[in-house]
Every structure is written in C-alpha cells, then in structure tokens.
Design a binder for these strands. Structure first.
Lengths: 229, 229
DNA sequence: GCAAAAGTGTTGTACGTACACCCATGG
DNA sequence: CCATGGGTGTACGTACAACACTTTTGC
C-alpha cells in the first residue's frame, strides 16, 4: 500500500482503490466532562501533517453509504456504533487542503468521554479530548468545522435528544444545566432551566440521590426513552 | 469530448479532466408563481436518462469552490448570479445513482420565475417549472432532495430573508401570506399573519396600490433592505 | 454553625392562537 | 347593490425572563 496523505487517522486503512480520493468525512466528536464540552482530536504521525492536530476522518469508501462513514470512523476510534451522529455541512473551498482538492462532509457525534477506551490508529500519535474553548490550531479548515458543528449543536439542542447522548445514564439536574451552559456558552437561570426541562416531560426520577459530595445530595434522573419523540 | 452521463444539464460542459467525477452539486431552484411554490426541473436529452426529469446540477469543478458551484449551475440556466442559495445537505447512499458512485451536495436557490429567461442547455430537452406538489418522478434520489430542500426552507423561513428573494420588488401582504402558506403547506390566519409581519419591521409601504383587480386595491410593500439583519 | 450546593414561586412581558365583521371597489 | 377580496382588534393561554431565599448535609 502506498502512503496515503490523508488516512493518517485510520487504524485499518482501506486499499486506496476502495476510496474516493477527493471526498472525505470529518467527525467532530463531542463529549461532556468536568462541566466542559470537549472535542476529540488526533495528532498526526507521519505524513505531511506530522505532529499537527486534526479531526478524525477518513476518505469516503466506495462501497459504504456516506451516512455510514462517520460510524466507521467512530468504530475505529472507540469501538462503538450506537451513538448520535448528525451531518452539519459540506466544506469544499479550493484551497482548504493545501496539497490537493478534497471536499469534506462534516458530521458531529455525541458520546460520553470515559465510557469508551480510545484506540490510537496507525497514522496517529495521540488521541486526546480538548475543551472546545481550548482547541489548538488544527490542520486545514478543521477549526472552522469545529465551530460549525457547535453552532449546529446549539440549534439542535431543543429539538434532538442531545442530553441523552452526552450525559451519563443517571445524572443530576445541575449536571444537565452545566451541559446546556457549556453548549450555549452562557449561564442559565436555575429556576427557569428546571421549569423548562420539567415541561418537556422527558426525564424520570430514579429515586436515588448522589451522596458522594459533602453537602445536600441531589436527586438522580434518567431519560424516559419512551418519551423521546 | 467523450459523452458524460451526468452533465446533461450543462450548457458549456467543462472538459472531463476539470471535473470531480464522483461529486456533484444539485440545485433545487424554487420560485413563487400563481400562488404556488414551484421548482425548476430539466428534462434530459440523450444519455442514460433520456427523457427523464431531474434537478439541474453539475459535477464539482476542480478549480471552483464548492459553494460557488450552485451559482455556476444557475448562471447557465438563468444568466443571473445575485440570488439566495443555501446548502441543505450531502446525499451519498451507495446506490443513489444506478450506474456509478456519485455523492451529491444539495443546494436550494430562490428566484422569481418570469424574471429571467431560461436557457436550455445541451443535454436538456426542456426546462420547466413544476408546482412542488406536482413534481413528476425524478431520476436518482432527486425527489428526496426536493423534499429535503423544502424542509430546510421551512426551517429557514423565520430566520432568513426568504420573501425578499421569492416575491417581486413590490408586493401585497396577501401575496406574502400566500407565499408563506405555500412554503408551510397550511393556511395562515390573516390577522395573525399581518401582525407577525408587522412585528418584524422589515417592510415599508411604497405608498402605491395595486389597482389591477376589480375590487379594493391592496397596498404595495417592499422590503426595507437596511433592516434585513 | 457554617460552608456549599440543592431546590423552589411569583410576576411581567411577549408571542401565538382563535375568532368575525366592516371596508373599498368595479361591474 | 352585490360580489370580491382587503383590511382590522380582542381575549386567552403559553412561554420566557427577571429575580432571592430556604433546605439539606458534612464537617
């Protein structure tokens, strides 16, 4: 197999003839940890972008549906498949990739960091979570993609089961509020937030509390899967 | 130049080596006429889809930004450039095109039918407006693209200057209401609609009326360009 | 008893919705 | 004078924004 300047992120790169060389998929994988929205980045190992940080991605495979591609990328990085993924745009300026004409389709994915063990593909030196307001300079237009993904996530926040994918199985309302604040980038009023969530009627109490902290123990909730439209 | 199975819509097809053969752009060109939302379709002439109806589109040109491609398509069909265009998604199921793997990026465009003279490209038999609820069976997944474009348009209706592009320079509030009804697919209450539009403060009276009809002459309005956010 | 976070209500305002009649005009 | 479409107001309910104090617990 010849060196492939863009498949640095692959664990099992496909033979080049199975790829569409001018069309890639990039994934903005978002997670919520330490009250912060984080994005999963990989550091290239070898190739023209050695040492630089980038979104995980891949060329579109000729025999795989476009919409399945982000799951392929995620499977290689995390070993999981049943996650929330949404397309947020196609990016295709002539000079977005400096050495070749490549159009990319951006997807964002929502997972819980820590729930999965990350694998480092061949072509990658490191895989690491970064807070979205501490993202380093990325290759190509990847910083733009991160911003576009977050804008889309903000718009989807009220109409898609975002929390269900970014929060642990059981969580407190304070955690959920922190998640909303991280996504929207602004503080929320506690009383208004709780009323709004209550009106959605998508949570149910577990009956348990989180008594790991040294003060009043908050109630734990979970999503009522039957009520997520 | 060899025959190119997909560039039926081109007036001046580019040499094949300037195209990205696995990546196309399709345009859902929408207009408003006779109180109906209409979409512009072309009928293929020659090639594997001879006689069938399709969205106008083109392969992505290697030396043209992706986001400029819909303008290229529109320029060939209508000779105009300054119109509203928005990307609504990338479509890439393996079997969406029956004879080859082609991913397409969908754009919708808004123009006033009748304002422009349509050109018939070589590769096309006809160019024709169809009411969106009377769209014939189209090639590939183009019917899906039309529906996706309209869904996107519905979501954009309140946040983008849709009317500014689909209505004539001067128009009545009834016309505008009919446009909203056509896009949303449901009747609007006249009083509520007028109050809503008034609250937006994006229109100004022209002082003129339309006295072409045999009853009370409605006032003519225009968009106040300085107030379109 | 205090620090630290959980939890809780009221009020005003803005917006959506439902609903019916008079007005102006041309023929 | 009548048919046709233009134009207008009120009342209600819901949703959001602003705002501060009490409760529980571990130490």
């Amino acid at each position: 197999m010849t060196f492939h300047p863009f498949s640095q992120t692959l664990i099992n790169p496909s033979p080049e003839e199975n790829l569409i060389p001018s069309l890639s998929v990039d994934c903005v994988i978002l997670g919520f940890e330490d009250d912060q929205l984080k994005v999963l980045l990989i550091q290239h190992h070898g190739g023209p972008k050695d040492g630089e940080w980038a979104l995980p991605g891949d060329f579109v495979h000729k025999n795989i549906d476009l919409e399945s591609m982000p799951y392929e990328v995620l499977k290689r990085l995390t070993g999981i498949e049943d996650i929330f993924v949404d397309q947020f745009g196609a990016f295709g300026a002539c000079e977005r990739v400096d050495y070749r004409r490549i159009i990319t389709i951006g997807y964002y994915a929502l997972i819980s960091p820590g729930k999965y063990e990350l694998k480092i593909g061949n072509g990658a030196k490191k895989v690491q979570w970064f807070a979205v307001d501490r993202v380093p300079c990325l290759i190509f237009d990847h910083n733009e993609l991160v911003e576009a993904a977050i804008r889309q996530l903000q718009m989807d926040l009220d109409i898609k089961p975002i929390g269900n994918n970014l929060l642990p199985e059981e969580f407190t309302l304070t955690q959920m509020q922190k998640l909303y604040e991280a996504i929207l980038g602004e503080k929320q009023d506690t009383r208004n937030f709780r009323r709004k969530i209550a009106n959605l009627k998508i949570l149910k109490e577990t009956g348990k509390v989180d008594d790991s902290a040294p003060h009043r123990a908050p109630k734990l909730y979970q999503f009522d899967q039957s009520k997520l439209k």
